[in-house]
Simulated assay, not measured.
Amino acid sequence: MNTTRETFERVIDTNLKGAFNVSQVIAKSMIDRKTGGSIVNISSVDSTRPSREAVTYSISKAGLDMMTKVMALELGPHQIRVNNVNPT
């Protein structure tokens, strides 16, 4: 309940939008070159279980998990693997 809007936006910008933007640029390059490849996102176990005072972080990592799954579906036909690791 104490998370500020600025903190929320900074965490989402870093953990979710940052991965989205970089992945989009890299995937486009791989598609254009017809090379295939692999994109690996670093998430967190906090994306799958609640932690006190980690709402923004958990939301950003849960979003990253789903983004990874969708990108894997979309990019698979281009021989691009998209995976996630969720360290503790």
Rank of each mutant, 00 (worst) to 15 (best):
N21E: 13
V22M: 12
K28Q: 14
P50F: 05
P50Q: 04
I12T: 01
V85L: 14
S51N: 14
R10G: 00
F8P: 04
I42N: 06
N86P: 03
V85Y: 11
T88Y: 04
K17A: 02
S23W: 03
Q79C: 11
R81A: 09
M1V: 07
I31F: 06
G76T: 10
Y57A: 03
T56M: 03
V25A: 14
Q24E: 14
R81P: 10
A72Q: 11
N2I: 07
D65Q: 11
A19M: 12
V11N: 00
G63W: 06
T35A: 05
S58P: 09
A72C: 08
S38A: 06
P77V: 13
R49I: 03
T56W: 00
I42L: 09
T35W: 07
M67E: 02
I31C: 07
T48K: 15
R33V: 02
R10N: 07
E9M: 11
S44R: 06
L75V: 05
T7C: 05
T14G: 00
N15T: 02
G63N: 12
A72I: 09
G63P: 10
F8W: 12
T14C: 05
I26V: 15
V11W: 00
N86K: 00
L75A: 10
L73I: 15
S43Y: 05
L73T: 12
S43F: 10
D13F: 00
G36R: 00
I59L: 14
E53T: 14
L73A: 10
L16H: 06
A72M: 10
I42T: 07
N21R: 04
T14F: 01
K28M: 08
S29G: 09
T14N: 05
I80W: 06
R81I: 12
V70N: 13
S51R: 15
R10S: 10
E6T: 06
V85D: 07
F8V: 02
S58R: 12
T68Q: 12
V82M: 12
S38W: 04
T35M: 07
V55G: 10
Q79R: 14
I31D: 06
S23V: 02
E74G: 09
R52S: 06
N86T: 10
N41C: 04
L73Y: 12
A27E: 04
A62D: 08
T14I: 10
I39L: 13
S51A: 13
A19W: 00
S60V: 04
F8S: 05
T68C: 11
L73M: 15
N41H: 12
P87K: 01
M66G: 06
S44E: 07
E53W: 11
I26K: 07
T7W: 01
I80D: 13
I59F: 07
S47M: 08
S29D: 13
S51M: 12
I26C: 12
E9P: 00
M30N: 01
E74R: 14
N83K: 05
M66N: 13
S51T: 11
R52W: 10
S38D: 01
M67R: 02
G18W: 01
R81Y: 14
V70S: 14
S43H: 02
H78M: 10
G76W: 02
T3S: 15
P50H: 07
A62R: 09
P77F: 13
N86W: 01
S29Y: 07
N86H: 08
R81E: 08
